[in-house]
Write a protein that binds this DNA or RNA. Structure first.
Lengths: 224, 224
DNA sequence: ACCTGAACACCGTTCAAGT
DNA sequence: ACCTGAACACCGTTCAAGT
């Protein structure tokens, strides 16, 4: 152990994982490398391997840590006072979880690449199952429900459609696309016209997330 | 140009992209490197850069190519004979798109990392907008609908919950988890009991996908 | 027990040079 | 116009060695 290593706080799995999240928050997952990670911890890349088995393990741990943050944020939510109230309770829970992802915009892409089960993710789903049980659902419907919600249960969705990445598309670009994408351009032109003062960007992510969530929750409620 | 380069078919963006898809199909995206790509094309890594600007461009192109495959697969679907029939038409369209993803199981993770808009993805959505217009939807609701469907419109979802990765969990593992995950384990035990002969794995992905899709489509239909 | 330096096999990519 | 070899700056990771 060098003098440097003695002076600083000792490494640990937790410190490695929280440093990894810090790097991704500040400069994106692409710049999360073992060497950068070590540098942020005033250490050497090879030292990490004593606390973490490899980079995949780091990413698994990051997913676990973020979901743990969600589990803590969600722990204080009151259980529904009566079965019919499962829906607002689930809604609150999911929107609370979403707040955590808003702090880590790179996280959905990392979650998408994981193949191993995260203990914390299972804990999160366990809570949701309990909520729906209390709401009067059968285990069979709950099982389908978990699949139907997918990542939406954790507070994020895969957005493939996001014209202009949150910026209003300019009229010239729209006109150029009109020939090949008549319906889409027509839709965008009308939606833009309806909401001309929007400076928040093209689509309000929060509104859209809640819209989709409510459709699924309402549909599930009908199956109770 | 060497003798090798003269003998083989000349490189082109299309050949590079279809080789990339071939590599990912056979051995996963992790093994899709510029050098492997060149090797498969009987060429050198550097030669690729004449046809493709960098690796990001390759991944963008792969997304475009796969969505083009979807657009071709979906082109032959008859438009609905009357407005109420928008739903079965949309359903057929989405399930057809899903078939393409079943051939490329690595593709959803790649789609998840893209930030630039794909022309082919916009074309796909354009068709869906047209379908919903004919079904009597307002542009405003269609806009919300695209967000609500998210990647599900293209035929895939983010499955974070998949106990045992498609294999039935063994009883010992379940018992060990029961203490910390009582609701989840209870659910799994009951669902397993209901369907003891299932050898296809724990969850039938196709059934679950259709279940979730129908909830969303039914919910949208109510907003017509 | 915990950390590290040197080294290896691999990346993506630039650049100048070939045909 | 199209392709390539050598080279660079970077990866993740192994292994033997330090304290």
């Amino acid at each position: 152990m060098t003098i440097d290593a003695q002076r600083r706080a000792p490494l640990s799995r937790e410190r490695v994982l929280s440093a990894a999240i810090g790097i991704a928050d500040e400069s994106g997952v692409a710049s999360l490398t073992m060497r950068k990670l070590a540098e942020r911890l005033d250490s050497e890349a090879m030292s990490l391997y004593y606390h973490v088995s490899n980079k995949e393990d780091v990413l698994d741990g990051v997913v676990d840590a973020i979901t743990q943050e969600i589990n803590e944020a969600v722990a204080g939510i009151d259980p529904p006072a009566s079965p019919e109230l499962w829906k607002p309770a689930a809604r609150r829970r999911i929107l609370r979880a979403r707040e955590v992802f808003l702090k880590h915009p790179w996280a959905p892409a990392v979650f998408a690449t994981r193949t191993t089960q995260s203990m914390q993710v299972m804990r999160y789903y366990d809570g949701l199952v309990g909520l729906m049980r209390a709401g009067g659902f059968s285990n069979d419907v709950i099982h389908h429900a978990l699949h139907a919600l997918g990542s939406r249960a954790l507070g994020f969705t895969q957005e493939l459609f996001d014209p202009g990445n949150g910026q209003a598309p300019d009229q010239d670009a729209l006109a150029a696309m009109a020939e090949h994408l008549p319906h889409l351009v027509g839709m965008l032109a009308e939606v833009a016209h309806d909401d001309p003062g929007s400076t928040l960007g093209w689509c309000d992510d929060q509104t859209e997330f809640e819209f989709g969530l409510d459709i699924v929750l309402d549909g599930l409620d009908r199956l109770r």
